[in-house]
Design a protein around this nucleic acid. Sequence first.
DNA 1: CGTAATAATGACTTCGAATGCAATAATTGA
DNA 2: TCAATTATTGCATTCGAAGTCATTATTACG
Lengths: 335, 335
Amino acid sequence: MTKNKKVTSYDVAREAGVSQSAVSRVFRPGLSVSAKTREKVTAVANKMGYRPNAIARMLITKQSGMVAVIVSSRANENYPEVLSQVSKQLAARNKRVLLFTLDDAEGVDELFEQIWTFQVDGVIALAAHFESQRLAQFEQHKIPVVLYNRNVPDASTNTVCCNHEQGIKQLLAELKLNNPKSYLVLSGPKDSDVANERREIALDLLQKSGEPNVPVLYGDYSYQSGRNCIAQWLKKNPAPDAVICSNDTMAIGVIDEIREKHNIHIPNDMSVVGFDGIASSFWQSYQITTVKQPLEQLVKAAVDMLIEHIENPDSPPEARVLTGTLIKGNSVKRP
Amino acid sequence: MTKNKKVTSYDVAREAGVSQSAVSRVFRPGLSVSAKTREKVTAVANKMGYRPNAIARMLITKQSGMVAVIVSSRANENYPEVLSQVSKQLAARNKRVLLFTLDDAEGVDELFEQIWTFQVDGVIALAAHFESQRLAQFEQHKIPVVLYNRNVPDASTNTVCCNHEQGIKQLLAELKLNNPKSYLVLSGPKDSDVANERREIALDLLQKSGEPNVPVLYGDYSYQSGRNCIAQWLKKNPAPDAVICSNDTMAIGVIDEIREKHNIHIPNDMSVVGFDGIASSFWQSYQITTVKQPLEQLVKAAVDMLIEHIENPDSPPEARVLTGTLIKGNSVKRP
DNA sequence: CGTAATAATGACTTCGAATGCAATAATTGA
DNA sequence: TCAATTATTGCATTCGAAGTCATTATTACG
């Protein structure tokens, strides 16, 4: 009753009294098959439970139909949403997601090995840092890559990124409304490109507006590091009027730490801003003033770009920068 | 300079002056090759940048080395962590993750098509609900499946699940310490198996302990639904002494709603418990009393089970139930 | 040193679908 | 009705690595 072996196109061909080529053509779009044959083959195929073997197809067409998606542990809390969007949008373009997670620099060699052997059609890297020499390897292998949420200066790579400068400018303008006397920047880790970019932009803008020596603390993007950093700082220093956090999660940590252990009111005594617009930043208990990344559009841009480069390998590299939305929460005092 | 075409085992063979078989053997573990040949081939392969083509290998070995991981939109906020664990642990077993996201019942047909054609070695479904007829299809196709975070009564499927009964029992015991006079159950959606299970267990245990008519509200597991449900309830009813939420996210919503709009203190006037132990349930502002799922162990169990069934297709189906840890937070009054 | 045992090697076939090309069938137009 | 097109079809080959089997090179040992 239950067939043990897989049904192949030959089996269907024999049963339907046609050639294997005919079966193949029925299952490829836009090929010349008569209505009669198509009908006959489809019927037999359905009856026998035949599905074309994607592996065999990949081998001959040299297109795996798979896109490697590399998720680094650095990815923020938007990542499940991003990943799900990526998967959906790639599915709409008839591509599948081969998922790789990257914890630290250790696994990179292994990761690249896998990517070459699996003959993926393209790569999307979420918040992962690669040496430019690594990026060059992709080019050698002629595998299109899009870096999500990264801004590479040398412009030889496809990138999609939120406009950090614009966003931070808006956040600072919001803070300025209260004429803060002292600032503190809570940066993400030094080995995160995005963290570095956000920090430098903030410091730069602050300096230009007459705040040359703003102190910087380094967290690791986590809730706990937000708490720890601000706790350490307050042990030896007075509370700053404004804290600029490189992401929402740390901002939440800062707020919780202040609330629990200090007699400082947010936003009356201290303003805190974040970045990203993660779901919990909107929760009643936090309501952080932040910049919400345009997730869906960012993902769409990334996927469009990747498909474009897969279909047309000679397209020039491109960098797309999308602007986020300022969210006026309650973590900055309204004057 | 840059080779245009992919390097194949034949190219390496020719260059190294050996047969293609020899090259193949060098790249498969445990096959008989002399040190001399191995060395020569490895050298040439490295020089030419040869990587075995996984697609070709899949075709001949009939093992894709890929596991389909199906993530439903129902997956809770632990899912990024779960997914990352799954990916890592499968990688350790030399399997890759082919990711599918499932929004609603719509995509199921298409999903299954993909799974058959991609010849995956196995399937892990995260929090996804499949009709038993669907599950039967996996069996027909001889593809091992493990359902993560589901408890199927008929026991013909491999499942890994947290011990809901044990967990809820502990939560209720915690609540009982205050002798609550009134309860409210905030359930997840009716079409979620886990939600149904958690709700029924809670109602059952409550009834057995002399609380026969506990009212039930239905949310959709989201923060907002937690807020909405409790808000609606309080419009027409007095505040219950204890609220039992089917997950942490809704519990957080309940807490935020109460804090913002009502003169009710948690935990003094009202106790709230959740389930899952998501990261934000530990945040200072919430500190929910909940049951933390043993994520890593659950994933390990799922992966072990899947690999076992891939390697030994005749293993009998198995259900593993792991016990979570009661987290005594601050959302239940300490007597 | 010769022979039995073992290790290493290469020629050839296989996996399953796609496709170039030549052969055949159907259609068109005069 | 018949030649000229055009649409279908099947044959044979291809993709790239793996594995079978027979053959040759090594090693072991009496």
